[in-house]
């Protein structure tokens, strides 16, 4: 799994950083997403998928996902 961010979409709500704090943080300046681990280990994939799903501005894209594992 590889994480890519649509930076201009982020509205700094922080759901990702609340759901997967080892993978996402937020900038102290304006609260926009900071990726701590762009290729997270398997045991965090579930959390990361949830974070992407709950992002209100669809700013988190996940690559290398097999559709069978989605949702």
């Amino acid at each position: 799994m590889k994480i890519a961010i649509h930076r201009n979409r982020c509205i700094a709500v922080g759901n990702c950083a609340a759901l997967a704090p080892e993978v996402f943080d937020q900038s102290d300046e304006d609260g926009t997403v900071v990726v701590l681990d762009a290729a997270p280990p398997d045991h965090r994939h579930e959390q990361v998928r949830e974070a992407a799903l709950r992002c209100p501005s669809s700013a988190i894209a996940l690559h290398g996902e097999t559709p069978a594992h989605d949702g």
Binding site: A12, G14, N15, A17, A18, P21, D25, Q26, S27, D28, E29, D30, G31, T32
Partner: peptide, 15 residues
């Protein structure tokens, strides 16, 4: 205006 405040209300700060 919102961008002036979002840095103060991050998930980390809440934690």
């Amino acid at each position: 205006l919102r961008r002036m405040l979002t840095g103060s209300f991050t998930a980390r700060r809440a934690r």
